[in-house]
Simulated assay, not measured.
Amino acid sequence: MINKQWYLWISLVAVLVSGCATNETSIDPVPSRITMVTSGDLDLISSSAKSFGWHPTMFTVRSANKLNDAELVRHMRQSITKIMEAKGYHYVESDESPSILVGFGMALESEMSDKEIMKRAGLVAGLSTKGVDDDYEKGSVLVALFSPIRIQPVWKVLAQGFTDTDKPIEDREQRFDELTTMMLNSVPNHVM
């Protein structure tokens, strides 16, 4: 009986060890670490809020010409619009008095340090770059929601992840959309 249990334990350990070895050899070479931090209170956005528009001044990209800044702004607006519409909000121009104003910023680590992000946004996600290949750079994305009657954002989220700055933006759009979806996940759905 002891030999049978011993054999069972050895077999179980062998299966687990071989499973671990298989997982280690199939690690995705693209760093997929993402950290996020939020601040504020979404309850400060009126439950009757139905529309959103762009904040008049908060849409910044700091990429030192490594990326096409105008294309990043366009894609970020497109991504946020898609998510907000899926949540039941509709986009309106600023002269149509949106219920929510949305602002955003994006920066590469080479252009804006965590210290500077903390100073400007009041948040820092603190994603470590330890062990990350030089082909990738840490990027930070901030999305802030404003009530039209408040100067300060009522809610904001900062996410940090890694991007391959040598790839065209079109090759990164899906990951970018996934990140924006995660960032805006806690924004309540508008009940029609």
Rank of each mutant, 00 (worst) to 15 (best):
Ala86Phe: 04
Leu158Gly: 01
Glu71Cys: 02
Asp41Ile: 15
Asp41Tyr: 12
Lys130Glu: 15
Val17Trp: 02
Met118Asp: 07
Met84Asp: 02
Ala21Arg: 11
Pro153Gly: 13
Tyr91Ile: 04
Gly88Trp: 02
Ala70Asn: 09
Phe104Pro: 12
Met36Thr: 07
Gly40Tyr: 04
Tyr7Ser: 06
Leu179Arg: 15
Pro188Lys: 03
Pro168Asp: 11
Leu184Phe: 11
Met58Leu: 09
Ser79Asn: 08
Val17Phe: 06
Ile80Thr: 08
Thr129Met: 00
Gly161Lys: 09
Leu12Gly: 02
Met36Pro: 02
Val154Asn: 11
Phe176His: 11
Val92Arg: 12
Glu111Gln: 13
Ser94Pro: 14
Gly126Lys: 01
Thr38Gln: 13
Trp54Glu: 01
Thr25Glu: 09
Lys167Phe: 10
Gly103Trp: 00
Ser11Ile: 08
Leu8Thr: 01
Trp9Gly: 11
Ala159Tyr: 06
Met106Val: 13
Lys82Pro: 04
Arg77Pro: 01
Gly131His: 01
Val191Phe: 13
Ala144Cys: 10
Gly103Met: 03
Leu158Pro: 00
Asp41Trp: 15
Gln152Glu: 15
Leu72Glu: 06
Arg77Asp: 06
Tyr136Thr: 02
Ser113Gly: 04
Glu116Thr: 05
Lys115Phe: 14
Lys167Leu: 15
Asp95Met: 07
Thr25His: 07
Ile2Leu: 00
His75Ser: 09
Pro31Ala: 12
Leu142Gly: 06
Ser32Glu: 10
Lys50Ser: 13
Trp54Tyr: 02
Val124Asn: 12
Met118Lys: 05
Thr165Trp: 04
Ile149Trp: 10
Gly88Asp: 02
Val30Gln: 05
Lys66Gly: 13
Tyr89Gln: 01
Ser97Trp: 13
Trp6Tyr: 14
Thr57Lys: 15
Lys156Met: 14
Arg77Ile: 01
His190Arg: 07
Val143Gln: 12
Val124Asp: 11
Ser18Pro: 01
Ser140Ala: 08
Gly53Val: 00
Gly53Asn: 00
Met84His: 00
Glu109Phe: 06
Leu67Glu: 06
